[in-house]
């Protein structure tokens, strides 16, 4: 079951940028691409733990600020020759508000 939580307005996230949502399971990076689509990924690069929310957003991709690993925002998978995956969370935009699916977070908290 999904459980949508309002985390803020679309305008709060810079275009081609990201903001962070703190959760009990660590930070989630919420990205806004140039086409105003929004993606949420675990804010931690599987390589050395770099904060993906601080990376450069290009197309539907983000580059980790520490060692330039590039992740697909849609799937969370590392691109190119690097291998690794970041957890993704569903998002939705409703009337200019960004909604994050927190069911995964809740489930894991409950477990």
């Amino acid at each position: 079951m999904t459980s949508w939580i309002d985390i803020g307005s679309l305008e709060d996230i810079p275009l081609r940028g990201a903001r962070v949502v703190k959760t009990s399971l660590g930070c989630v990076a919420v990205f806004r691409a140039s086409d105003d689509s929004v993606f949420a990924l675990h804010d931690r690069c599987p390589h050395k733990g770099g904060p993906l929310s601080e990376g450069i957003v290009h197309g539907h991709k983000v580059t980790c600020p520490l060692h330039n690993w590039v992740f697909d925002l849609e799937t969370g998978a590392a691109t190119g020759t690097d291998e690794g995956e970041v957890a993704t969370f569903a998002t939705r935009i409703e009337a200019g508000r960004v909604l994050l699916d927190a069911s995964v977070l809740e489930k894991q908290t409950a477990a």
């Binding site: 939580i5 985390i7 810079p14 903001r19 962070v20 949502v21 703190k22 959760t23 009990s24 809740e106």
Partner: peptide, 13 residues
């Protein structure tokens, strides 16, 4: 503001 989290779900929980 931009240096702070946009939302803090730990508090909400």
């Amino acid at each position: 503001d931009s240096y702070a989290p946009v939302a803090d779900l730990t508090l909400q929980a």
